[in-house]
Design a protein around this nucleic acid. Structure first.
Lengths: 337, 337
DNA sequence: TTGTAGGCGTTATCAA
DNA sequence: TTGATAACGCCTACAA
C-alpha cells in the first residue's frame, strides 16, 4: 500500500523533483547521465508520472472519445478498429460510449467529457434528430468533434460520410435490372440522416425507371430483433415484395430468417441487397449482396482528422465534409436463381 | 476561448468555491436553496467539475480499462458490450486497448494505466505466454485486475473462463459420433491457455474412442487470413480430414472458403464445429455448428466482479475462478448430408 | 545543469 | 450553513 510519486523518487535519488520531472519529458536541460539514472530508478521502483496530475498541468488528456449508437453492429466495431489504430500510433487513448440510440444519453456523454476528460470526440449520432442543438453549444476550439455516418445536417462540424445516396440508387437500380418491380425499403429511422438519404436514393431510382412508389413498401423497423421479425414477416406476406433494400445490416438478417420461416426463396422469390459491413457476407446462404462501407478507413480518417485538429493544424474547407465511397458487391442474393 | 471553473462560478454566485463544490457532491452541509441556485447557474454557464482535478484529489478515476487481443472478433466485441453495459450503470467510463496479440504492447498498456489513469482492468491476455511476470508486480490492491478467456495460469488473479475443455471434448465426440475419424484441430497458438485447453479436450475425446492421435491433424494457423487460407487448403488436401474442430471462429471461415475453392463439400466430405460467437451462424451455407460462449455475460460478469472489488467488497475464493458454460449448437455443418 | 516555487481545479478539514 | 486553506502530483518559469 505504498505509492510512488515524483517527490519520493526525487528523495531516493537525492535530486529535486524538477530534475526528475525533466527526465520524463523531452527537456534537453538535463544531463544524459542523470536522466539515465532517474529512468533506471523509476523502472526499479515502478514509478510512472501520474497521468491526471500531468493532464491538469498541461490541460490535455491524450484521450479521445468514440461515441456510437451501438456495439452490436459490425460497422461500428470496425469504425472503432480504425480509430483505435490511428489513435494508438499517436499515443492517444480511446474511451468508448454507447448511446443505444438515446439522444439523452448522447447528450449526457458529451457533457460528461466536456471537462478536459477528453481532448476530442469522434461520434456517430443517435437516431433521433429532434433537438440536438446542445451540440452547437460545444466550444469546438476547446473540444473538437468529428461526426461520421449518422450526422446532423444542421450542425456545422467536420463530417465523414459515405456516398449513401448513390449506393442506394445503384442498389435499387440493380434490383430493378434483375427484374424486381415491387421493391421494399427497410429502414429503422427514416427521419435520421442515413435512413433519409438512403431512402431518397431508393425513391429516385424508382422514379427513373417509372416504377410507382408504394408507401407500403417503405417498412419501418425498430432496433429490436423480435419486433423486426414480426414486422418483416408481415410486410413480406402482405406486400409481396420481389426485392428488398435493407438500409442496415440487421434488417437483412431478419429478412433471411423471415424468408426461412415463410418458405420464401431468396433470390427466386425475393432478391435482397443490404447495407452491411459483414466480412463473411459471401458465406451466407445465399451469399448476400452488400453495399459495403469502408468502415475501418472511415474510422481511421475520422481519427486522423481529429488528431490533425488537436495538433493545431487548421481543417480546410475541403475536409469539412469528406465523402468516402461504398462498394456494391453483387452476390447470389440479388442474382437470377 | 473561455473556460468555466469552480472559482469563476463561485464569483458569479458570490459564494466561496467550497460551497459550490459541495453542491456537486452528496454533502448535506448545504441548504437546498443554495444548492439549487448553484446547480441552476452551473447549467446556465455550462460548468462541470473538472474530472481530472477531482480524480487527483480523490485518487480515483471512475474509469476501467478493457484490454483485448483484437477487435476483429465477435467474441471480443461482445465482451466489450457486456463490460460497457455494466460499467455504464455504475457511472464508470471504459478505455479500450487492443494488443494485437503482442505481449510487449500488453505490458506497455498495463504500465501506461498504472498511474491512476484507471481504477481497474479487465483483460484477456495476448497469445504469447513466455514472460508475463510483469503482471505479478502489479499492486492489485491499488489496481485490481480481472482476467477472462485467455488467461495466464500461473498468475494469481480473479479469472473468468468458459468450460473450454468440456466443450472441446463434446464437440470432438459429436464429430466422432457423426462418423468422423480423421478430425483436424485448427489452432492459432497451442501454447496459449485456450488453445491448449481446447486441444486437450480434443485429444482426450479421441483417446476415449480409441482414435489414434495424428500430429499432422493438429494444424497451426496464424492471425493472418491470407496465410491461413494456404495453411488450411494445404491441410485439407494433404491430410484429408473428414472433420474439423476450429478453436477460433476465424479459422472456420477460412475453412469454408478453402472448401469452396477445393470443391470439398460441407458436411458431406468434411464436417465442421467451431468455437464462435457469430450470431448468424445459422445463416451460413451450410449453417455452422458452434460452441457458443456467453460472451456478453462474461463481459458483464467480469465488470461486475471488478466493480465489486473497486467498491471494497472482498472477493471470496469461489469468485477467483468463475467458469461459465458454453453451448454446443449443432447445425448443418456437422450433420449427415 | 539543477533547484525553487507557484499554480493547474478540486475537495476535505477546520474554523467562523 | 458557509468560508479559508491546505493538499492531490506534476510541470515550467525563473533563479542559482
Amino acid at each position: 500500500m505504498f505509492s510512488m510519486d515524483i517527490i519520493k523518487l526525487a528523495e531516493v535519488l537525492n535530486l529535486s523533483k524538477s530534475t526528475v520531472s525533466r527526465a520524463f519529458r523531452d527537456s534537453s536541460d538535463i544531463s544524459a547521465e542523470t536522466k539515465q539514472r532517474i529512468l533506471a530508478k523509476a523502472r526499479e521502483l515502478n514509478y510512472h508520472p501520474n497521468h491526471y496530475a500531468s493532464n491538469m498541468r498541461e490541460q490535455k488528456s491524450m484521450t479521445i472519445a468514440v461515441v456510437v449508437p451501438e456495439l452490436a453492429n459490425n460497422y461500428f466495431t470496425q469504425i472503432i478498429q480504425g480509430v483505435e489504430k490511428v489513435a494508438k500510433t499517436s499515443g492517444y487513448h480511446i474511451l468508448i460510449y454507447v448511446t443505444d440510440d438515446d439522444i439523452a444519453r448522447e447528450q449526457e456523454f458529451i457533457r460528461g467529457v466536456s471537462n478536459g476528460r477528453v481532448d476530442g470526440i469522434v461520434m456517430s449520432v443517435s437516431g433521433e434528430s429532434k433537438d440536438h442543438s446542445y451540440l452547437a453549444h460545444v466550444d469546438v476550439d476547446r473540444l473538437p468533434i468529428v461526426l461520421f455516418d449518422r450526422i446532423y445536417d444542421d450542425i456545422d462540424l467536420p463530417k465523414i460520410v459515405t456516398d449513401d445516396y448513390d449506393s442506394s440508387f445503384r442498389s435499387t437500380e440493380h434490383l430493378i435490372q434483375q427484374g424486381c418491380s415491387r421493391i421494399a425499403y427497410l429502414v429503422v429511422n427514416k427521419e435520421q440522416s442515413i435512413g433519409k438519404v438512403r431512402m431518397q436514393g431508393y425513391m429516385d431510382a424508382l422514379r427513373k425507371y417509372r416504377i410507382p412508389l408504394r408507401k407500403r413498401l417503405i417498412v419501418d423497423c425498430t432496433n429490436s430483433y423480435d419486433e423486426n421479425a414480426g414486422i418483416i414477416e408481415n410486410a413480406i406476406q402482405k406486400q409481396r415484395p420481389d426485392g428488398i433494400l435493407a438500409s442496415v445490416e440487421r434488417l437483412a438478417f431478419s429478412t433471411y430468417y423471415a424468408c426461412g420461416k415463410l418458405s420464401v426463396r431468396i433470390p427466386d422469390d425475393l432478391k435482397i441487397v443490404a447495407f452491411s459491413s459483414l466480412e463473411i457476407a459471401s458465406l451466407l446462404s445465399p451469399a448476400l449482396t452488400t453495399v459495403t462501407q469502408p468502415a475501418i478507413q472511415i474510422g481511421e480518417r475520422a481519427a486522423a482528422l481529429l488528431l490533425k485538429k488537436l495538433q493545431g493544424t487548421p481543417i480546410d474547407d475541403t475536409e469539412r465534409l469528406i465523402t468516402m465511397e461504398s462498394e456494391l458487391v453483387i452476390r447470389a442474393s440479388s442474382l437470377p436463381a
